[in-house]
Computed example of a mutant assay.
Amino acid sequence: PYEFMRIDDIDALREHFGRGNWAIRQGVVFDDLAFINQVNGGDEWWTLKRDGEEWVAFESTSFAYAIEAKGRAAFETLVRSMQLATPAQCKALDYYDKDASAKWAAEHDPRTPELERSLAQRASDAREAASARNGRSHAPRREAQAID
């Protein structure tokens, strides 16, 4: 039998995986992801992504290792990459995005201060917004100003 718990906070998920020594078939559901331990007392998590009513299996992940060896930020980037990716990207193992944490924060946390985003990100967003507003392409161009 499988035993699942739901975790809704990424810090709580990190703490969960950091504890270690999990029984086989213990599982965690986090947003549209599910993780099921594959090794009794171990840290190999069968990783699945929800695709409508179905679950797509796509990875085997060692989270305790990622947390211990690479740190909190690396763990968050890995999980956010999985969340932002489509089921097809996950299945093709083409889901990792080094900027996933920042993208997740920008999309899901309206309180993210503008200054936390890089200057290049802010400039790109401003160009896109101006182009959309003016019905223009993304290519910058200058317009002559009329002189009276």
Results as ranks from 00 to 15, higher is better:
36 I>G: 00
47 T>H: 04
125 D>I: 12
62 S>V: 05
130 A>E: 06
52 G>F: 01
99 D>N: 06
123 A>H: 07
80 R>Y: 08
61 T>Y: 08
59 E>K: 12
126 A>T: 15
87 P>K: 08
51 D>W: 09
88 A>S: 10
112 T>A: 05
22 W>E: 07
52 G>A: 03
134 N>T: 13
65 Y>E: 02
63 F>Q: 10
73 A>D: 15
105 A>C: 12
45 W>H: 12
82 M>R: 09
124 S>A: 12
23 A>W: 13
125 D>F: 13
34 A>K: 12
97 D>V: 01
34 A>Y: 07
74 A>Q: 13
21 N>E: 15
112 T>E: 10
92 A>M: 08
59 E>R: 14
45 W>E: 14
90 C>I: 11
84 L>A: 03
90 C>A: 05
125 D>K: 15
85 A>C: 11
77 T>G: 01
40 N>R: 15
85 A>Q: 10
122 R>M: 01
135 G>K: 03
54 E>F: 09
101 S>L: 10
50 R>Y: 04
45 W>G: 11
78 L>H: 15
35 F>M: 06
58 F>G: 00
134 N>I: 09
107 E>I: 01
63 F>D: 12
41 G>I: 06
84 L>F: 06
31 D>E: 14
95 Y>H: 07
94 D>A: 15
102 A>I: 05
130 A>N: 06
50 R>N: 02
84 L>C: 04
91 K>C: 03
24 I>H: 05
65 Y>N: 03
71 G>D: 10
49 K>S: 00
121 Q>I: 09
88 A>T: 14
77 T>D: 12
50 R>Q: 13
47 T>P: 00
58 F>P: 00
57 A>M: 11
105 A>V: 09
118 S>V: 05
30 F>E: 02
59 E>T: 00
49 K>A: 00
117 R>T: 01
84 L>S: 02
